[in-house]
């Protein structure tokens, strides 16, 4: 168990290094000169050189990378050359939005998916077929398009929810929830169908095992067997797929936040990409990687809790 956690944490190091190296290498080979871009057409060669020296951009790329790494370890992710904003600060103000979105999305997807999967596992072939179809449909509908359709029907036509915008949880809990309903649905549909399919398959497999028969022999009711023993034993693949969808949702926020104009990290990544703000993008990439590491770690810990064989080792 401890070995597993250590392995996960060790994998995080190359992961973060690769992502940051990648952005640095790309900056180096990218056409164009950031200082020239910042100063615009009125720039003189002297002013460009001065700005490059001030920003440390005339150092060799390896030296620049080392400086960035040194600062990153202390939590300082640098300053955007485009907006002159601290990357850490920009991320800090936008993190709550993205976290609200991803956590709520995962929660909704897991609850709906497990419920649907249980019903279809225990409810015979026809319900199983429905879950199969839903899983395929959920897989092929892109979240941003679904979001736009939700906006069209529930905002433009019916006016039930705001089409765009975000209300902070601290400002108005009701408004916060209302502003997140549509984006969360758009994000959660694909995950919910994936969880449903996994739950159905895992439950069917577990309910066919010998110990379920033995529990029936003990006189436990089907309900007790399903919820106390079946679900517990089917939980490992369900937890796995939930972890995967949590990670996937961070990527999904890039599009969904753009559709709903939410001030989150995904939107920040898009606007930084549009302005060529690689420092900012790099910061976002690092945060996303940290989320991946955290999710994998949480899944591993859940395995340990769910599977006594892992725990003992």
């Amino acid at each position: 168990m401890i070995r597993l956690i250590v392995r996960r944490l060790l994998l995080a190091v190359p992961l973060l290094l690769i992502v940051s190296t990648l952005t640095f290498v790309l900056t180096a080979v990218a056409p164009g000169d950031p200082a020239a871009t910042i100063l615009g057409s009125s720039a003189t060669p002297e002013s460009i050189a001065a700005l490059n020296a001030k920003l440390g951009l005339d150092d060799p790329i390896v030296v620049q990378y080392w400086h960035w790494l040194e600062n990153a370890v202390t939590g300082d992710l640098g300053t955007s050359v485009v907006t002159s904003q601290s990357v850490g600060q920009a991320i800090g103000t936008r993190l709550p939005t993205t976290l609200s979105l991803v956590l709520l999305g995962t929660l909704v997807a897991a609850v709906v998916g497990i419920g649907l999967g249980m019903v279809s596992a225990l409810g015979g072939r026809r319900l199983g077929r429905v879950t199969d179809i839903l899983a395929v449909v959920g897989y092929v509908i892109p979240n941003f398009w679904l979001g736009l359709m939700l906006v069209y029907f529930l905002s433009v036509r019916l006016g039930w929810f705001p089409a765009t915008g975000y209300v902070g949880l601290g400002d108005s809990p009701g408004g916060w929830l209302r502003s997140l309903v549509l984006p969360v649905i758009a994000l959660a549909v694909m995950g919910a169908t994936a969880v449903a399919k996994q739950t159905r398959d895992a439950m069917r497999e577990v309910m066919g095992r010998e110990f379920i028969t033995a529990l029936r022999a003990d006189g436990f009711s089907e309900r007790q067997i399903v919820f106390r023993h079946g679900l517990r034993n089917a939980a490992i693949p369900i937890v796995t797929v939930t972890g995967v969808l949590f990670i996937g949702m961070f990527g999904g926020t890039v599009l969904v936040e753009s559709v709903f104009v939410l001030p989150g990290l995904g939107g920040l990544a898009v606007s930084s990409a549009q302005t060529g703000d690689l420092t900012m993008l790099q910061g976002v990439a690092v945060v996303f990687c940290l989320a991946v590491v955290a999710a994998n770690l949480a899944v591993d810990l859940a395995y340990g809790w769910l599977n006594p064989k892992v725990r003992v080792q």
């Binding site: 992502v19 961070f250 994998n296």
Partner: peptide
């Protein structure tokens, strides 16, 4: 492969398209 699976693909893509617009 494990490291590759953990890369945030969408953000990496944004980095690439932003650099080589």
């Amino acid at each position: 492969t494990d490291v590759g699976l953990s890369l945030p693909a969408m953000v990496v893509m944004l980095v690439v398209v932003s650099t080589f617009s």
